[in-house]
Design a protein around this nucleic acid. Structure first.
Lengths: 122, 122
DNA sequence: TTACTATATGAACAACTGCTCATATACACA
DNA sequence: TGTGTATATGAGCAGTTGTTCATATAGTAA
């Protein structure tokens, strides 16, 4: 639980100008929240594996459960999260739902992650 | 607590070939873990704000605490996480530690996030 | 030394998250 | 209708996380 600004005024400020500049140029709460939510969604190992797998080919819930070695329920929960973020979409073929990578805007993000990973470890 | 593969063998597999391909081309556990850790580090709103602020100018712990309106201790904890991931570094000037944005590889990642955010919401 | 400042660290706790299990829903076919 | 399959949903729980508080450390200055 965060404190209010009133309760926090005892804090000394060394560089008022820098704090002021940071506050002025900072992103709004909504943008920070959305950005955070986006990173959070692709930060979970299970969801990351799902995204990378679906980036290659369509898969149904059962396939993903076998691939990830977790319950189909767990997969379904994670797909719900990914679908809500519009990172994946699905199409129905009879009783089977096929999920696929949906958001082209996500590719650069994943790629940047992979690049950063590669250049940090060599 | 995850189940072992033995306990999970009752799962039906609709497309064995897709599961096999996904397993073959999947990243290793270490890579997934590192990638996940990287995204997780920039997924927290507080750390995100710190990164974006330090991307502009050096700031000390006290400045960041005033900017973020949280305790200096909380800032210090988060800076420790960011420093461990080599996303920020610091220099000492007398008793004051100045933190700065350290990892150039992180910029594209943040930028990709901002781009994705922008193109998803318009 | 002593006093003060700036930051770091450890403990504790509330909030969140990802899983399993049990159950519900949606579709196909007889 | 009824049965079986594929997936979704809700509850519950263990593990993780971000914060505050109290305390410790590192540096400055007398």
């Amino acid at each position: 639980m965060k404190l209010t600004s009133d309760e926090r005024c005892h804090c000394r400020i060394i560089h008022k100008d820098r704090v002021a500049l940071a506050k002025q140029t900072a992103l709004g709460p909504k943008q920070i929240s959305q950005l955070s939510q986006m990173f959070k969604t692709i930060a979970d190992p299970t969801r990351l594996k799902i995204i990378l797998a679906l980036k290659q080919e369509e898969m149904c819930v059962c396939d993903l459960a076998a691939f990830l070695n977790i319950s189909e329920s767990a997969v379904s929960h994670q797909l719900r999260t990914l679908k809500h973020m519009q990172f994946v979409s699905n199409r129905r073929e009879g009783p089977v739902l096929y999920y696929r990578f949906a958001n082209d805007n996500l590719s650069p993000l994943i790629q940047a992650g992979l690049d950063t990973l590669g250049s940090t470890n060599v």
